[in-house]
């Protein structure tokens, strides 16, 4: 290799000048690092990429990249991403959420995005808490986790996003841990390259409201299985999963969403013929 040859795409090419305002120690810093590395690995120019998000600490990520970004309202990022991708299939669209944004207020869109199978990569930074609103329980919060809004815990069974994604028709299901930024980057690359709706759940600690999540680094482990394209097998694995298996857990081969196209193009002016009397 030639020493003088510069790297074609460096992760820094995908970072914007806007400085993140996440708490020091927040897992989302790692996710940003992983995301920009993934983008560099894909080698697409930043203007061919779009990052769409909702609201939450995690959803601040688009502005920290150098790509086209859309920072919308709480819970609706998948809808924006879907519209963008269908209207502009030539753009690579990455949608980013948090567990509150994606699984609670945006839960319905999650189901239907999986079903619809538009060629998107969906990354959810799951910290089992509403970070931005200062520590309320989210759908993935453990039932006994004490918060001001649910003293003593919610007592509710946590949402299982991977099982839901699989059951709803996602074409690629993976789990990553932000503390392994390189592995996370590779999973994001894989998700983007895989056709259809690809879902990557990223365990991304909230050091402020969930300091206990610093221990996740000792709990995560590579999934002891190879990816399957059999949804039934994947479902069995995911149902008995400890929540810390990392890697690609399902890789389907369903054809991505394709809107109908016309054989011949008509001029808009000609469409009123059907009304002429």
């Amino acid at each position: 290799m030639n020493a003088a040859e510069p790297l074609k795409c460096r992760p820094s090419d995908y970072k914007s000048e806007v400085k993140p305002i996440w708490c020091p120690g927040c897992g989302d810093y790692h996710v940003l690092m992983a995301l920009t590395r993934a983008m560099a690995a894909l080698g697409l120019p930043p203007e061919r990429l779009a990052v769409v998000s909702g609201i939450g600490c995690s959803s601040r990520i688009p502005a920290y990249t150098n790509c086209y970004g859309f920072h919308g309202v709480h819970g609706r990022s998948l809808a924006v991403a879907t519209g963008l991708k269908i209207a502009r299939p030539d753009i690579t669209v990455i949608c980013a959420s948090g567990d509150g944004d994606g699984y609670s207020i945006g839960g319905n869109h999650f189901l239907h995005a999986c079903r619809r199978n538009v060629d998107l990569a969906y990354i959810v930074m799951d910290n089992h808490i509403y970070g931005m609103t200062k520590g309320q329980p989210s759908p993935t919060t453990e039932p006994d986790f004490d918060t001001a809004l649910a003293p003593g815990g919610t007592g509710l069974r946590p949402f299982n996003p991977l099982v839901v994604a699989l059951a709803s028709g996602a074409n690629f299901v993976a789990r990553a841990y932000s503390g392994n930024p390189n592995e996370t980057a590779e999973l994001i690359v894989d998700a983007i390259k895989h056709p259809g709706f690809s879902f990557v759940e990223i365990l991304s600690p909230c050091v402020t409201y969930r300091p206990d999540q610093r221990s996740w680094k000792d709990r995560v482990h590579p999934a002891p299985v190879t990816p399957t394209d059999d949804p039934a097998r994947a479902a069995r694995r995911l149902m008995t999963d400890d929540g810390f298996n990392l890697g690609v857990l399902y890789r389907g081969n369903r054809a991505p969403y394709k809107p109908p196209t016309a054989a011949a193009m008509l001029a808009p002016e000609s469409l009123d013929e059907e009304f002429v009397v």
Binding site: M1, A3, P24, G25, A185, K217
Partner: peptide, 26 residues
């Protein structure tokens, strides 16, 4: 030469050894 040091993602599965642990920041 120093090559590309493992491409944009780098050769390490988890994280580069000498990179400080971000989680420890406060």
């Amino acid at each position: 030469g120093i090559g590309d040091g493992g491409g944009p993602i780098g050769p390490w599965k988890s994280d580069s050894p000498e990179a400080a642990d971000l989680y420890a920041a406060r």
